[in-house]
Amino acid sequence: MEKKDSAKEDFIVIRIQKSRKDEWKRKCLEKKISLSSLIVNSVENRLQDNERREILEFIEKQDNIFIKIETNINQVAKIANNQKFIRANELQRFSELLVEVVSLKQKQNKILERIYSLLSK
């Protein structure tokens, strides 16, 4: 059985303007990825490592926010059922969380659109 070697075996030399190379390196620094990763993933239409990290961070944040919202919805319902009214500050906090949900859903949709567009190529 032949063992598959995943070591880098070859290299590509390209000629570009120094300013363009510097710009690519700057982008890599911002995204915290290597220049090789930027080029290979771009050519192969794959998600960049930084995009994967953003997606995972977003999903984690979204889960935490939804847990808080579920807890607050239950608290608001309990208060409303017991007291037959809701204080203004509680209703304000509840409204703020709902606004945050809308924002997260919009962000989620943009990320999913990006994923789908990358997968369809």
Rank of each mutant, 00 (worst) to 15 (best):
I67E: 12
I111D: 11
E60L: 10
L91Y: 11
S19N: 11
K105G: 12
N82M: 13
L97N: 10
S19W: 07
K105S: 15
A88Q: 14
K78M: 05
S36P: 03
E100G: 11
R52A: 08
I12W: 03
E2A: 12
E113Q: 13
S95A: 14
F11A: 14
K3A: 05
Q83M: 10
V101W: 11
N89Y: 13
Q17S: 13
N50H: 12
Q106Y: 10
E96K: 14
L97C: 02
D5K: 04
K105Y: 13
C28Q: 01
V40R: 15
F85L: 04
S42H: 06
I39Y: 02
I14P: 00
F58N: 05
N50G: 06
K21F: 02
K68T: 04
D10A: 12
K4I: 15
L97V: 03
V99Y: 07
I67C: 08
L118V: 03
V102M: 13
E23I: 10
E57S: 14
D22K: 12
L56E: 07
F94V: 01
L98P: 09
D10Q: 14
N72P: 01
D10N: 14
I79A: 08
E2M: 09
I33S: 01
K61W: 07
D49Q: 02
N74G: 00
V76G: 01
V43S: 08
T71Q: 06
K105W: 07
K4H: 10
T71H: 11
I69P: 02
N74C: 00
L97G: 05
N109F: 15
